[in-house]
Amino acid sequence: MSETTPSPTGQPAAPGAAAPSAPTAPTAREERQEVLLSVRGVRKIYPSAAGPVEAVRDLTFDVRRGELACIVGPSGAGKTTLLKIIAGLLEPTSGQVILEGEPVSGPPRTMAVVFQEYGRSLFPWLTVRGNVELPLKNARVPAAERARRIDEALEAVGLAHAHRRYPWQLSGGMQQRVAIARAVAYEPHILLMDEPFAAVDAQTRADLEDLVRDIWHRLGVTVLFVTHDIDESVYLGERVIILSSSPTVVQEDVHIDLPDERSQLETRSTKQFADLRHHIYEQIQLAKAGIVPAQIAAGVTQKEV
């Protein structure tokens, strides 16, 4: 609980949301450069009955404030493990995660997580409204403020009509919207999402992808989005971090230079999209075959020495 100031709710990277120590307010551009999340040499070895399992070998990358970064990797690459470590739910075996200058040692107040298993991450004894409200109640947000944030968040995810329903009365896509609304109402600086749409049908999935872009645009929140779907990572991200298969390192960090305005129909049929998709697909195939690009492999060996 290092910081409790709410995130800016205006445009992305709104000036004035800067660190208070900055002598002059940085411009939006400068602020985009500011590193929000820093993953430093994170390694995770699970002790297990059948011997230790090295899920993550050595991961290092930065996420800047206001960025929408996707992490792709083959199944079992350690994506969930990484996310749990970033979220302060799991201790890394070695290495460190730094959020807004503070090492993460427990769940940070300025972070919200959306899990893949929406059916298991909503509180079944609470209504939709109750679910969105719970973290705010726990954070002792005053009632009037709470009501405003809940209304806005549910409005934003298109569930303004469903306040009094229970999660189990809703479809999968709607349940995941509730989980997103809950995260949004919490006003985090960074939103972690672990394959949030892996279990919903294709149409719902497209809608939810657009919802994530929309929320990211409107709130200026930093988003780290984990997926195993290459298309999804290219469509959503400004940047795609490709993970190798386990034991995991960063395979490649790809900048997605698609225009900011994206549409399911147009964007996905551009040549640029196809090229990026092709490139990432290739890298993942290499990753699966255990071939790591030379410079990274060299980097890893250096660190290991």
């Binding site: 302060g88 769940p107 899990f115 298993e117 991450s121 719970l134 919490y186």
Partner: peptide, 27 residues
């Protein structure tokens, strides 16, 4: 208690007595 539900509560800073009243008892 479901592990995902428990992680969700933790990630929203629900611990100690709040965890008992907000998660453990109802679950």
């Amino acid at each position: 208690i479901d592990e995902v539900l428990s992680d969700t509560a933790k990630s929203y800073g629900i611990h100690g007595t709040s965890r008992i009243t907000m998660l453990t008892l109802p679950a």
